[in-house]
């Protein structure tokens, strides 16, 4: 096997925020120099540090192909998946690596995502199917599928939580990924829920808590547009309010008229 050639440009310098509650001090920053090769990504660089320099450096990883959602972190202030970040653009100057914001840090770059998954479970994120015989599929048009498809791409990496300003006001905000998930079921013609889903998001923890500043849409590594979902759900809720007001008005005027 031919060896990949080592790049001539300067080495990769990573300044990593560390955390270990058993140490004194528990928080510190450590700088590592990594030898790079052509086509290398940030996850490979971190793995190389773990192998060759410091086996205690902790971070999550799995697929290395931007589909599993394990390696979200903050790199020079931007939230990214490490595996999807080529080191080529980071050479020369020092790169600051921090854990994903918003979530409590467990160790180094590993964060506790239990709140994220608590919110996820809270919306009952599974299809509540309309009745259908067990031996045939639901009929669905490609146009209906394409409507939902952007929201299916979510890998639950947590990046949108890290960039969302709404949490600053209310830490109990359901969060972009979770609201996008709710919309995915709302728009699925196979799901029998509609009012339940809308009721579940119709407050300040839900769609009304969003600042609609599209930070999540910009940051999502899978191009999921949670804000669009939120705005569309707001629209539906308002439509419901209007029609129920209108029908209440109608029935009232009918009652008055029949007197």
């Amino acid at each position: 096997m031919r060896k990949l050639t080592v790049m001539d440009t300067s080495a990769l310098i990573l300044k990593i925020k560390r955390y270990n509650p058993e140490k004194d001090p528990p928080r510190w920053t450590e700088t590592f120099n990594v030898e790079t090769k052509k086509g290398m990504n940030l996850l490979e660089a971190l793995l190389r540090i773990q192998d060759e320099q410091d086996p205690t450096l902790s971070f999550r990883y799995s697929c290395r192909g931007a589909v599993c959602g394990s390696c979200a972190m903050k790199v020079n202030g931007k939230l990214v998946l490490a595996c999807r970040t080529p080191v080529e653009g980071l050479l020369g100057e020092t790169t600051l690596i921090e854990p994903l914001p918003f979530f409590p840090v467990i160790r180094d770059l590993i964060v506790d995502m239990s709140l994220f998954f608590e919110h996820y479970r809270g919306i009952e994120p599974y299809l509540h199917g309309k009745p259908i015989p067990s031996d045939c599929e639901y009929m669905m048009m490609e146009s209906e599928r394409k409507e939902i498809d952007p929201y299916i791409q979510c890998i639950l990496c947590g990046i949108c939580f890290g960039v969302c300003p709404a949490f600053g006001r209310d830490a109990q905000f359901l969060g972009p990924a979770i609201l996008a998930k709710a919309y995915r079921f709302l728009r699925d013609p196979r799901d029998r829920r509609e009012k339940e889903i809308l009721n579940g998001v119709n407050d300040h923890r839900g769609v009304w808590g969003c600042n609609t500043v599209f930070q999540c849409v910009k940051a999502c590594p899978k191009e999921v547009p949670p804000t669009h979902a939120i705005v569309k759900m707001r629209g539906r809720i308002l439509r419901y309010r209007f029609t129920s007001l209108f029908s209440r008005f109608l029935s009232m005027s009918r009652r008055i008229g029949s007197r």
């Binding site: 199917g129 669905m140 599928r145």
Partner: peptide
């Protein structure tokens, strides 16, 4: 899997 929500192409 389709009944459970898999979004198969159509």
């Amino acid at each position: 899997m389709e009944h459970w929500g898999t979004l198969f192409s159509r």
